[in-house]
Simulated scan of single mutants.
Amino acid sequence: MNFASCSKAWTIGDLSKCQPMGLNVDTWLVIITAIFIPASIFLVKYFKGKINSSSTCRIPYKFFGSRFRGLCRKIKPLTDDNYRIFSSFGPNGGHTERSPKVVRTELDVWYGLRSKIVENNHIIKNLINENWDIIPKRHIISFRRWLNHIDAFQAHVTMGRADYRENQFPSEVVEIIKRHA
């Protein structure tokens, strides 16, 4: 039976007369159900957990993990440079695991180099903001804390005595960047 016959059967309300490819409506219903139900189950399982609490779709990490890796590779040299400056010249930076914490009193070099950290942080902040959609959900809080630290440190440097103790550098981002770079 052809399409015109099925259209006529639909119009008169008797689908038993519509038998495309020699199969009746009940058989087609079984075939469509056999395809639709497993496909629906697959889609639900696949996308389960892919939507965050604000009902916007987060891109699955397994698809764009390489993009996050690329972001980390861009950020890592900047964080390495910041660490080098802070550990070599910062007020609390002169300690190692073997030696006790050293507080430096001669900070002229540190005051001169803080602007380089602010410059690196500005680049890091732009990279994070431009690539926010590829940051894995499990790292979002750490990256928000990092952005808060960047803003607070910049205010501390530009305003002199601005207190940023509540926005210290989130040390876990070092491991995140290292692991993915």
Rank of each mutant, 00 (worst) to 15 (best):
A4N: 15
R104W: 02
V103K: 15
I128C: 07
V109A: 07
I51Q: 03
R73F: 01
F153G: 01
E130W: 02
G160W: 02
S7F: 14
P60F: 00
I124W: 01
R161F: 05
E166M: 14
I141P: 02
R179F: 03
I31M: 04
F42I: 11
C18V: 10
S16C: 09
S88P: 10
R179T: 12
V103P: 00
I123H: 06
W110S: 05
L29E: 13
I12Q: 10
S54M: 01
H122A: 15
T11G: 09
I59G: 02
Y111D: 12
Y111W: 04
D151W: 01
R73Y: 01
R161Y: 07
W146A: 04
W132L: 07
Y164R: 12
K8M: 11
F143C: 04
I32R: 03
I31L: 13
S40P: 05
T56I: 08
A181E: 08
N121Y: 11
A4I: 14
S40K: 00
W110T: 09
R58T: 13
C57W: 03
I123K: 14
A4V: 10
Q168I: 10
S16H: 07
L127Y: 12
C18K: 12
L127W: 04
N148F: 09
N82K: 02
I59V: 07
L43K: 00
A181D: 11
E172S: 15
D108Y: 00
N24G: 13
D163Y: 06
Y46E: 15
D163R: 11
I117V: 12
Y111L: 11
N167Q: 13
N2A: 12
K116E: 15
S88D: 15
T79A: 03
S5Q: 14
G70S: 14
I51G: 01
N24I: 06
I150M: 13
T96F: 00
S53V: 02
G94Y: 00
S88M: 06
N148K: 13
R104N: 09
S16N: 15
K125A: 15
I177W: 02
A4P: 00
A162K: 13
P77L: 05
R73E: 00
I117F: 03
V102G: 02
S55R: 08
D133C: 02
D26N: 14
I117M: 10
N121A: 09
S99M: 04
Q19A: 12
C57I: 13
H156F: 07
F64V: 09
